[in-house]
């Protein structure tokens, strides 16, 4: 699904990633661990297409498409999703409005309003008054209205699953959200957009035990619904791995993946830390 070879990334002349190799297969769960400043978040951002990084790689592909020159929106349309470590505030834009646009962008017609020509043609046998009426109230039979309200319903279910209040969809994106709400909002977006490759950057930081359980449960549920989606978890701690069992664990230190293994590698790190691989 995702295959990266010899990826080197720099920002303002400073090299952050120094030759990363990574292969993620369909349906796999990978965990990326490492000390602060090791380049984990940079890797996540580079896969999602953050424009500030200078990227060189002999191979940088998602489902056999070269990612190097694709802008973030194009990557999202391919099915790549990044759950941000520090999501930004977008004032004046409601969560619902934002997700509606995003869904429209990645999934296309599902929730668009069909052109009026389509509507009027279908209703050509109605008299003008009823057409006007239908336009005014939104015909219950109209696919658009139905799809839109279905989408809202779906979001409300996710929100309630994540124990986010009823007015959550009306609030401005991340504005005045608590740390936990911000994280859960990222998960909500993941559920709504059904991506193929999910990268969650420190989704567990800033969450209390209950919050962590909830988020982990939501991730599991999502993976049950969207079988075949792959997951990269970026974390400092092994505690989330109590709930989500990874297929592979990678350790990143100073811009390189220094060791890959299975679950027991995470346990080893939990006990000994990263000292083994660190130069300083």
């Amino acid at each position: 699904m995702l295959s990266i070879s010899d990826l080197a990334v720099s920002i303002e002349g400073k090299e952050i990633l120094k030759g990363v190799d990574l292969k993620i297969g369909k349906g796999e769960v990978h965990v990326l661990m490492g000390p602060n400043g090791s380049g984990k978040s940079t890797l996540a951002q580079v896969v999602a297409g953050a424009p500030q990084f200078k990227v060189q790689s002999s191979k940088f592909k998602f489902e056999n498409k070269d990612l190097t020159k694709l802008t973030p929106d194009k990557r999202a349309k391919l099915g790549i999703f990044l759950g941000f470590q520090n999501p930004v505030e977008i004032s004046g834009v409601s969560v619902f409005n934002f997700l509606r646009r995003a869904k429209q962008s990645v999934a296309g017609p599902v929730i668009s309003i069909p052109p009026a020509s389509a509507r009027s043609r279908r209703s050509s046998k109605l008299d003008k008054k009823s057409i006007g009426l239908l336009r005014a109230v939104g015909s219950p039979s109209s696919d658009a209205t139905r799809n839109l309200s279905m989408f809202r319903q779906e979001l409300l279910e996710y929100a309630s699953f994540l124990k986010l209040g009823e007015d959550f969809l009306r609030r401005a994106v991340n504005e005045g959200f608590s740390g936990g709400e911000k994280k859960r909002n990222e998960i909500l977006q993941m559920m709504a957009l059904s991506p193929k490759l999910v990268i969650l950057d420190e989704i567990d930081s800033g969450l209390d035990v209950d919050g962590l359980k909830l988020v982990a449960k939501a991730i599991k549920q999502f993976r049950l619904n969207d079988t075949g989606s792959s997951l990269i978890l970026i974390t400092h701690y092994a505690r989330i791995l109590k709930y989500i069992k990874p297929d592979f664990v990678h350790v990143m230190v100073e811009g390189k993946i220094v060791k890959s293994g299975k679950m027991n590698l995470a346990k080893e790190i939990e006990e000994k830390g990263y000292r083994l691989w660190q130069t300083v």
Binding site: A48, D73, L193
Partner: peptide, 19 residues
């Protein structure tokens, strides 16, 4: 902000106008 919105599939123009 642009990167956040674009990473959800919005084009640069859409993201800007949403902001």
């Amino acid at each position: 902000k642009l990167f956040y919105l674009m990473s959800r599939g919005l084009s640069e123009v859409e993201a800007t106008s949403l902001i």
